[in-house]
Nucleic acid binder design. Structure first.
Length: 218
DNA sequence: TGCCAGGCCCTCTTTAGGGCCTT
């Protein structure tokens, strides 16, 4: 089962899109992703996609992706087929994952591609692990955790890379604060569904479970 | 010009409403 995989090996992805909802006809215009293997970024994927209609000026300004840039880009279907090979059957991570999942599901459906992974969400995790952050936008969390950035925001690969660093920071914080090694993807998903006030107690229990029992001399 | 979605989560709640977060 994919949930039992180690959280140190995942694909972190980010979509730039023409809007907020594939149900309203919005499409992906860029996909960016990084592969994390054993806690290190080992590969990257970035492609622009032609949505076959004009990108509005708000999205052009917001993302910096213009109609001219996607004019000669590959179709969403072609890019999605390549992307499916990139993610293989790794588990997936995104910031506000419900947004990226609905676009991935929609674009994969158009491309007739299937995937076996499941999503974890750094936004839900950050709300629980970093309740003192001013807010839980990706840019704010990058600053809050002093994570590396090249100063580019709202481009798919840059955002995926920052999300990857945030994911790794969360794993490190759990390892350091609760002395839990070999963190599973399943554990991260469980944390993201807990009440914020219950997370510390839950992780303390996990820590106790994983500590080897002392041998009795009696 | 201004609005469009949807899952999560909190509270002035649960027979609801509104803010957060993503583009």
């Amino acid at each position: 089962m994919l949930n039992n995989k180690n959280a140190n090996t995942v694909v972190v992805l980010d979509f730039e899109t023409t809007g907020l909802s594939p149900n309203m006809g919005d499409r992906g215009i860029e996909i960016g992703a990084v592969l994390i293997e054993n806690g290190k970024i080992t590969d990257r994927f970035q492609k622009l996609m032609n949505p076959n209609f004009r990108i509005n000026s708000f999205i052009e300004d917001y993302t910096g992706i213009t109609n001219a840039m996607v004019k000669n880009a590959d179709s969403c279907s072609k890019v999605m087929k390549e992307f499916a090979q990139f993610i293989e059957n790794h588990n997936l991570v995104a910031h506000n994952a419900s947004f990226d999942k609905k676009f991935l599901d929609s674009e994969f459906k158009c491309a007739r591609v299937k995937y076996a992974g499941t999503f974890a969400c750094t936004m839900l995790l950050a709300r629980r692990l970093y309740p003192l952050s001013y807010n839980h936008k990706l840019g704010t969390l990058v600053e809050y955790k002093n994570l590396p950035t090249e100063g580019v925001f709202h481009r798919a690969l840059a955002d995926a890379e920052m999300t990857a660093h945030l994911w790794l920071a969360m794993l490190e914080d759990i390892r350091n604060d609760f002395e839990i090694d070999n963190i599973s993807f399943s554990l991260m998903k469980t944390i993201s569904r807990k009440k914020a006030s219950d997370v510390s107690a839950y992780l303390e229990k996990q820590k106790a479970k994983r500590q080897p029992r002392k041998q009795s001399n009696i």
